[in-house]
Design a binder for these strands. Structure first.
Lengths: 148, 148
DNA sequence: ATAACACCTAGAGTTTACTCTAGGTGTTGA
DNA sequence: TCAACACCTAGAGTAAACTCTAGGTGTTAT
């Protein structure tokens, strides 16, 4: 079973431009073409696109994904490099999630504060209400840096 | 108390280039300059930089941050717009965290799998071990899309 | 007084990941 | 047969967020 580029656009949501670009960047080294140059994607190619999406979502750049694919195609001699890539990614994702949690708290504080400010029609009044002062102290190291 | 651009570089970790760029983009509308054009940042400006960092970390683009700052400076007539901005951000951050959780599971699976593959020296053997087949089924909708 | 240093502006250059254009090929239904 | 359609390549263009260069000003330590 093979698929035209139009089929793959429908299946993946990627544009045809992007699919050709990925190929040019070495992310799909085994896509077949017929005599007149028209691409025929295999199920294997589609699985690679799934993996590429995952690696992209994890924050890898395209050249890093290409490196991974090269390692994969070199076989078991590159297992250690690939393990190391996934370890680093996991650590980076952990940091990223911790960072997002901190940001989320700040944004949620702002959302609550502005909900109250809209209710009373005045930001300063809301900011000085005891429960927001309290919340701010609980959430931030330097609370007054956060009144902008 | 005021600070030179060099002081602010040390305090924030931003480059002087970036600080001037932010100013050019309207993120620091009130930085004072002396007669010969040298910047003197106030504590208020530093608080704005803290807020800008938070908004950037939440995923806002620079032009959106400028919009927020403009709204802030217009006063209480823009409370509703600012509330709406924070609501949207909170929703986007929730989605982002959910997305990262999914990616994290996949990367952790890969890390475990490759740790075992390195141990036995062969990726296929590790992939076919019962516990990894089991883990894969538990984690993914289309498990075989994930063997790349 | 002169060299080092920190700062300035305007504008050009960089990086990443696309996105599009121009000009062309091959297939197919009326 | 001929128009519509899907596809092709090479290369140019875009957006965002910096980052740097060139050429200049003002201050300070020796």
């Amino acid at each position: 079973m093979t698929y035209s580029i139009g089929d793959v656009v429908k299946k993946t949501g990627l544009s045809a431009y992007t699919l050709r670009y990925y190929e040019k960047e070495g992310l799909l080294p085994f896509v077949k073409k017929n005599a007149s140059g028209v691409r025929a994607y295999s199920d294997e190619d589609l699985r690679w696109l799934t993996m590429i999406e995952c690696l992209k979502d994890s924050g890898l750049q395209i050249k890093e994904i290409r490196q991974y694919i090269e390692w994969f195609n070199e076989g078991d001699s590159t297992l250690a490099q690939r393990l190391s890539l996934f370890e680093n990614r996991r650590k980076i994702l952990e940091k990223e999630m911790a960072r997002l949690t901190v940001v989320m708290n700040k944004i949620r504080y702002k959302e609550l504060l502005y909900r109250e400010a809209v209710r009373v029609g005045n930001l300063d009044i809301a900011t000085n209400e005891r429960r927001f002062q309290h919340l701010k102290k609980k959430l931030f190291e330097s609370p007054d840096d956060f009144d902008k």
